[in-house]
Amino acid sequence: MKRRAFLTLAAAAAALPRPLLAGAPGRQGLVPAEPPRPLPAVEFKDAEGRAVPLSTFKGKPVLLNVWASYCAPCVAELPALDRLKARDGGIVVLAVSLDPLGAKQAGGTLRRLDVTHLDLLLDPGFTLTGALALPSLPTTLLIDREGREIGRFIGAAAWDGPEAAPVLDALRQGRTLAGVTAPPVVRLTGPAP
């Protein structure tokens, strides 16, 4: 509970300064892909170092979160993803860590957070940033049953909360994200980690 208190809804999200500089990795919130975008063949590693191709999950809607231990908002978002996964609402919930030092680093973070439902998945070689075009973390890709990206959420969200439900419903029902109300970006408060 303490950690949740650390997250506040960015009520002032609209008041946040927009990135002024072209190329600054500053875009945040829901970015629908219209039309849905086929994704390149990517894979990550499980805790034992075995390759897990993303195509493994074809046929099911997938929420693919990309995080790292050095990214404080990513770490703050993980418990909500863990609770979402525990609920098993017909969506495959994947959280892939980009921790450069791999399983030891990422596994340590999951244990510290008491995250038990999410599987430890890794991309220590940082191949996903290029392949999936990720300028910033956390980024969560919403992937339909055909393995296409229907959109992405840049920044942290309370994925287990009521405000994320419309996006998750659309994903589950195979709809596009056009006109779907997005959850707000959550922002860390308190001292720098």
């Binding site: 990795p25 790292a68 404080a72 450069p100 940082f126 300028p135 840049i154 720098a192």
Partner: peptide, 19 residues
């Protein structure tokens, strides 16, 4: 380094390249 909402991936990309 203080990124309360989103953090850039460039340092990780550099680390990955060196690996």
């Amino acid at each position: 380094t203080y990124c309360p909402d989103i953090c850039p991936t460039s340092l990780g990309t550099m680390a990955g390249a060196l690996t």
